[in-house]
Design a protein around this nucleic acid. Sequence first.
DNA 1: GATTGCCGTGAAACCGATTACATATCAAGA
DNA 2: TCTTGATATGTAATCGGTTTCACGGCAATC
Lengths: 312, 312
Amino acid sequence: MSNPAIVAEATRIAVESAIAETGYTLNVTARNLRQQQVGAVLALVPKLANPFFSVILSGIADVLRGKGLNLLVLDTMVGDANAPQGIGSYLTRSHSDGVIVLDGRLSPDLFQRPNCPPVVQACEWIKGLSAPKVLADNAAGSNLAIQHLAGLGHHDILHLTGPLMNSLTTSRRAGVQQGLAEAGLNITADDRVIHGDFSLRSGHQAALQILSMTTMPTAVFCDNDEMAIGLMNGLTQGGRRVPQDISVVGFDNIEMSAYTLPPLTTIRQHRAELGRQAAETLLALIEGKEGEEEKILPVELVIRDSTSAHPG
Amino acid sequence: MSNPAIVAEATRIAVESAIAETGYTLNVTARNLRQQQVGAVLALVPKLANPFFSVILSGIADVLRGKGLNLLVLDTMVGDANAPQGIGSYLTRSHSDGVIVLDGRLSPDLFQRPNCPPVVQACEWIKGLSAPKVLADNAAGSNLAIQHLAGLGHHDILHLTGPLMNSLTTSRRAGVQQGLAEAGLNITADDRVIHGDFSLRSGHQAALQILSMTTMPTAVFCDNDEMAIGLMNGLTQGGRRVPQDISVVGFDNIEMSAYTLPPLTTIRQHRAELGRQAAETLLALIEGKEGEEEKILPVELVIRDSTSAHPG
DNA sequence: GATTGCCGTGAAACCGATTACATATCAAGA
DNA sequence: TCTTGATATGTAATCGGTTTCACGGCAATC
């Protein structure tokens, strides 16, 4: 039996010895059917291969395992990108007990259908979807970055953003603009914003674009570390020195950022903790407790060697 | 009904309209119970947060999704490392239809218990476990690396390995020794092998160790890219130039290796493909077909800027 | 001594699909 | 016309647990 406390001692021992003897193992599927649950939580990631998400997943797995729940992973990029039905068919109470969405590009409709299990948004969020969110303080982070650069005497700062329409891009852009305003900087030139896609490659391409400018910015803030690393690579190969000629700031503090040359100044966000909190919020939701709608995790500035005082 | 072909057209349409009307969704758990399956494959990874594995997982997910199977991920590092029971309790036919092991440190006993589903080993392998393996050609890869360095005139090559007892370390070490022998090099000094743990940090520490040597090697081969990157960071900060003073070769060709400074010469292994093949091998095993015991995937040398001719 | 109440035990219903089987329908051949 | 065969439909059994319920036994109270 499943509840050892309610049967007599003798019976329990007899059962246990029988279990050991016959090598019986419980059928999880049967139990789940009866209990009307699945025993698993689904994580929707944009790109499993991206190390950024794997750390968050690790935090999620951490909490889930403590509760005896499985972690199901679904890559939203795999398969027909045109077929949201593909993902939609997984969003059923019979597929998982709850969903953690890490992809802000999905349609909110997917999660508003009759049989959809509880949803929590982590890291990114979907416009028009009123599910609890667990986010890093993106605006504060980019604000910090700009304050840091402005404090070093930089007046001409370029912002290398993520994809347009991405929720992270939006909030980090807002933080940048607030930071610029607070520093009394008024940077209006069109070429002081470049839109990337969070990839190393797009950082590299941005470098080429910057190198071709008649007047180059003296500092660049990148919406993530990978673009910053690609950027530093491109700038250095183009004959510019970081930070002497151009300062670079990233965002995320991925492990690699401490080991680049030069080591990258960046904004630390606690991704494993973010995953953990998202998982806990979801568990609370599954148990019926309505949690807070939005949880913002603090970020902090990590100063390394990719930034220095403006020489001018 | 599940098989639309065997019923009359009219009946089928009636059923379909009823489904649309009532918003019926099939209960996967019930089907799985009846069909004596789980509909999911379990991946055992040593450290989910490690980007190396997430690419392999991505390849696995790719194949699985085509077959309508879910990907369950279990981090073998999470929880009590002392409690193999924790992992063992997942290795049941009622938990998953098959297992892909990416962690070579697990005990073979875990997979030889009565109710364990089919197992495939990918990337790493477990000594004493006779389950199909899908591996990169590790020995050939490190052999290639040594040939490359020897061809550039290096006579004094240090090998920065992975952890002792790790299956990758063993085979890569073998390839190195074969390569050295083929090149007619006889490097016997104890300090020409350093044992790391595949982490950035351990690469950095190796650099400190090398910098303190009275005679430094002219080239270093690292068992993975991350250690190579950590190493280059340490060497550069210690005032040595890569590749002018020391050449460095990595292994894996992670995305980042193309964007380090200098870009890293390394051995490319197709990790997504490795995941795909592992998944396909497992599927064949589940369907009862006995596949080949060991599949070796080719690797290739990618020459970038971290290696150059020995000045001497 | 009889009633009340509690507790442990065993049997039966239930979860929701698949699958096997029996029955009904119909067309073709004898 | 009757039989045979094939196909289609409806019904019941099954997967393996959990949960409910009724029953038997025992102790305490009146």
